[in-house]
Amino acid sequence: MIQMQDLKKDFVVRVKAGRLRRKKRVVAAVDGVSLSIGRGEMVGYIGPNGAGKSTTLKMLTGVLTPSSGTVSVCGLTPVPQRTKLALRIGVVFGQRSQLWWDLPLRESFALLRHVYRVPPAEHAARLERCRELLDLDEFMETPVRQLSLGQRMRGELTAALLHGPEVLFLDEPTIGLDVVSKQAVRSFLAELGAAGDVTLVLTTHDLADIERLCERLVVIDHGRVVHDGSIEALHARYGSRRSLVADLAAPLPDGFTLPGATLAAVTANGHRVTFTLDSSTAGAAVAGLVAAVPVRDLSVVEPDIEDVVSRLYSER
């Protein structure tokens, strides 16, 4: 569905050097990205600020012309075939609106039907579905400029889907939303993805979006792909482990060890201990611990993706 081969985008930045002179500096925003994304995949595209996420997305949608490399989306080349491609993709740029600022949401949707030349029946059916799933009814008649950010984002999502796109590009769709709106957007996207006919590429800074939605995670930094695979693969690669946290009735005896696990922290006067599970199973570790000291409470904590990713980013 999407093919990128050694895709690059350079920007010329003019830096002040002296009163009138300006120096030219070439910055590679995207520096040789090759990816292939199949139909129905849901891909999370993440990276620190300035890593090249948005630039990649803009090259995929035909907004920016690549400096070199090839790119194809739905079998089309984005820039020369931009208007043709636009009929087959949906785009939500979190910080840009596709809606008409001064018109009620309903009219924006009606306009988009003409812009995308969608048959009325198809349009109505898709709108009906979005209205249900995204609870649009209460603000359909409100001018867009009066919508809250969460409401507007739900409107933007609907706007991007009314023409039944094959690929949906979402650039930070949850940016600035409150917890409830984030949830609404995520479950909507999850439902969309479960149907399996839409390919979804999502950039975000909120890793919960990815954990909830994407089986595949592409991490980009300094314009290059530094990871491409599942979230589990990322954990495996960076050796992130589960840990066992236990509240004890009495402190651990001196010199206590659990085979296949390391003691990572002792807090609360020795009453709370954290073990990292290296090779031990959670069951074996719990059994070993309970045999040594009385345990009040325990929990197994999954590795935190935020940690892994921040480690990935700082490894520059």
Partner: peptide, 12 residues
């Protein structure tokens, strides 16, 4: 950057 929104629509 508002032009982005115009460029992703299926019209010149």
């Amino acid at each position: 950057g508002t032009l982005d929104a115009v460029l992703v629509r299926p019209l010149p």
